[in-house]
C-alpha cells in the first residue's frame, strides 16, 4: 500500500498533531477531567493509524519498528507493576505513597498520573503493534487470489 492522495496526506499531517496533543491532554489530565490512560492510549494508536492509512504502513514503522514497539509495550506494563510494588515498600500493594497535593492541580493525587501515563504507553503501543502485525503479516491471501499451501501448517 502506497498511501492516499495529496489532499489526504496534507490534512493528515496537520490533524495528527492535534490528535497527539489531545491524547496527551486526556492522559495527563486523567485525574481531573474525564479520560485516563486507556482512552488516551487508544487515541494515540488511532493517530498512528491515520498516518499509516495516509502515508502507507512503512512511514510509522520506520520511526518505531516492531521489536522496539514490543519492548515499549512491556515497559508500560512493567511500569504499572513497578508503581504497585513501590507501594508495597511503603505499606501495602498499590498504596498511594506519593504526596497527595491540592485538588484541581495538575500534580496531585499521588501515583495516579504516573499510572495513567504507563497505562497509556502500554495500550497505545500494543494496539499499534497489533495494527502493524495485521498489515505486515497479511499473507493469508496474496494478490493472486489463491491462499498459500501451508495455511494449516504455519
Amino acid at each position: 500500500m502506497k498511501g492516499m492522495s495529496l489532499i489526504v496526506r496534507t490534512i493528515a499531517r496537520v490533524v495528527t498533531t492535534f490528535i497527539f496533543l489531545y491524547s496527551a491532554y486526556i492522559v495527563v489530565y486523567g485525574h481531573i477531567t474525564p479520560g485516563g490512560g486507556f482512552p488516551g492510549g487508544v487515541i494515540l494508536a488511532l493517530g498512528v493509524m491515520l498516518l499509516m492509512l495516509a502515508f502507507g504502513r512503512e512511514v510509522p514503522l520506520r520511526k518505531l519498528p516492531e521489536g522496539r514497539a514490543s519492548v515499549l509495550d512491556c515497559l508500560g506494563a512493567l511500569g504499572f507493576w513497578a508503581i504497585a510494588l513501590l507501594g508495597l515498600t511503603a505499606g501495602y500493594f498499590f498504596l498511594n505513597f506519593l504526596g497527595k497535593g491540592e485538588p484541581f492541580r495538575l500534580v496531585s493525587a499521588g501515583t495516579m498520573p504516573l499510572c495513567n501515563i504507563s497505562i497509556s504507553v502500554k495500550v497505545g503501543v500494543s494496539l499499534f503493534a497489533v495494527l502493524a502485525a495485521l498489515s505486515i503479516y497479511r499473507r493469508f491471501y496474496p494478490p493472486g487470489g489463491e491462499p498459500p499451501e501451508d495455511m494449516s501448517g504455519g
Binding site: 486523567g30 485525574h31 481531573i32 477531567t33 474525564p34 479520560g35 485516563g36 506494563a77 504499572f80 507493576w81 504497585a84 500493594f93 498499590f94 498511594n96 497527595k100 497535593g101 491540592e102 485538588p103 484541581f104 496531585s108 493525587a109 499521588g110 501515583t111 495516579m112 499510572c115 495513567n116 497505562i119 502500554k122
Partner: peptide, 23 residues
C-alpha cells in the same frame, strides 16, 4: 485521594487490583 475525577480515583486507587487485572 485528592483526585477530582472520581472514576479515576476508583480505577487507580480504590480498585487498582481490577485495573491491574485488565491490563
Amino acid at each position: 485521594t485528592r483526585a477530582v475525577n472520581f472514576v479515576t480515583s476508583v480505577l487507580l486507587d480504590f480498585r487498582a487490583y481490577d485495573t491491574l487485572g485488565e491490563a
